[in-house]
Write a protein that binds this DNA or RNA. Structure first.
Length: 304
DNA sequence: AGCCAGGCTCTCG
DNA sequence: CGAGAGCATGGC
C-alpha cells in the first residue's frame, strides 16, 4: 500500500524528523538515510510505515509506503496517524510573521524554516516518555526509553530488520518495579509508569477523553496522578497532542537557552520563561521548540 | 570530586 | 505553607 501526503507549506521533512536521527537512529522512531520508519499500533494491529520526502520545502510532498506484510487496517486510519505524527497540518505562517518581532527568533528564521514539531503516536506514549525524561540528561533518558522499548515493546522482524512499537499500557501495567529498575529507571519512575499504566488499562483514566479537554482541565486531572507534575503534563501536551499554546516553562534545557539568548547567561526562573514566552500567545510552545532547536543546530552541525 | 542533567515526592519546620 | 533532601546515573 502506498499513498501520498501533502503537508501545509512550508514543511522541511528532514529537519522535522531529523530530531530522531540525532541519537544515531532511535529504534522506535527510526530515521536513517532520509527515510522515517515506525511500527505503529493502530486499531490493535501492527503496521510498519516508511516515509520519505519527494517534494521541496515550499512544495512539500511525502511518500508513505506500508509494508505489505503488515497491512491490516484502513488506509484512512494510517494516513491520519501519519499526518498527526509528522504535524503536516500545522499552519506556521502567522507564527513566522510574528517571529520577525523578536531579535533572537528572526535571526534563525531561515535555518529553521519549515521545521515542525513531530508528535508521538499516542498521548500515553508522550506521558511515559516525559516521565523517563524527568530531571535526567536527555541522551541518557533516551537510552533508558530504548531499553524499555526493547524489553516491553512489540517487535516485528521484516526483511532482516527488527522494528519495535512503543509498549502498550497493559504490558507496562504488568511490569515489575525491579525489572524496570534493571533497565536503569529509578524506583520512583518505575512506580510512576506502572501505576499510571494501570490507571489507563483499568479505565480510571481515559486518555482519549482527556485529550479532548482544555489545557487547564488536562493539567488539573493529570497532575493529580503520582509522578506527573506540571512540566510532565505540559511537555506531553506539546509532544503528544500538539498543543503549542502549552509551555513546559520549567524545562531545564529551555531555561538554559533562554538564559543564554535573552539574559546574557543569567539564570532564569520558570516564571521568567513563562513571562517572556507568553508574548507568543497560542504559539508559545512553538517559540520554545524553535529556541530549543537553535541549540540543537549549533551543537550538531553534522546532524541531518 | 562535585555538580548538573528537558522534576517530582516526601518530610520537616 | 515553603524549603530542602533524596532519587539514579553519566558527563564534564
Amino acid at each position: 500500500m502506498d499513498f501520498w501526503i501533502k503537508p501545509a507549506s512550508p514543511y522541511d521533512f528532514n529537519l522535522t524528523v531529523g530530531i530522531y536521527g540525532k541519537f544515531q537512529g532511535e529504534i522506535v522512531d527510526n530515521y536513517v538515510d532520509g527515510i522515517y520508519r515506525r511500527l505503529l499500533n493502530i486499531a490493535d494491529t501492527y503496521t510498519l510505515i516508511s516515509v520519505k520526502s519527494i517534494g521541496t520545502v515550499d512544495k512539500p510532498k511525502l511518500h508513505v509506503s506500508v509494508d505489505p506484510e503488515t497491512i491490516s487496517t484502513e488506509q484512512n486510519l494510517i494516513m491520519r496517524k501519519v499526518e498527526h505524527m509528522l504535524s503536516t497540518n500545522v499552519d506556521l505562517k502567522s507564527f513566522y510573521r510574528s517571529m520577525r518581532n523578536d531579535r533572537v527568533l528572526s535571526e534563525i528564521k531561515d535555518e529553521l524554516y519549515g521545521l515542525r514539531a513531530p508528535r508521538t503516536a499516542s498521548f500515553y506514549e508522550a506521558l511515559v516518555i516525559a516521565i523517563t525524561e524527568q530531571q535526567i540528561a536527555l541522551p541518557m533518558a533516551i537510552l533508558t526509553k530504548e531499553r524499555v522499548v526493547r524489553r516491553y515493546g512489540e517487535m516485528m522482524t521484516l526483511k532482516g530488520h527488527d522494528y519495535y512499537a512503543f509498549p502498550s499500557p497493559n504490558v507496562l501495567a504488568n511490569a515489575k518495579v525491579q525489572d524496570l529498575r534493571d533497565l536503569k529507571l529509578s524506583r520512583r519512575k518505575a512506580e510512576y509508569i506502572i501505576d499510571f499504566s494501570r490507571k489507563v488499562t483499568e479505565s480510571e483514566l481515559n486518555l482519549d477523553e482527556i485529550a479532548e479537554l482544555s489545557n487547564e482541565e488536562i493539567l488539573g486531572i493529570l497532575t493529580k496522578v503520582r509522578g506527573m507534575g506540571r512540566w510532565t503534563v505540559e511537555y506531553a501536551m506539546v509532544r503528544g497532542l500538539g498543543r503549542f499554546d502549552a509551555l513546559p516553562a520549567n524545562d531545564a534545557a529551555l531555561r538554559k537557552i533562554v538564559s543564554t539568548l535573552y539574559y546574557e547567561g543569567e539564570r532564569v526562573s520558570e516564571e521568567e520563561v513563562r513571562k517572556l514566552l507568553g508574548q507568543w500567545g497560542e504559539y508559545k510552545g512553538y517559540a520554545a521548540f524553535y529556541l530549543l532547536n537553535m541549540g540543537r543546530l549549533k551543537q550538531n552541525s553534522n546532524s541531518c
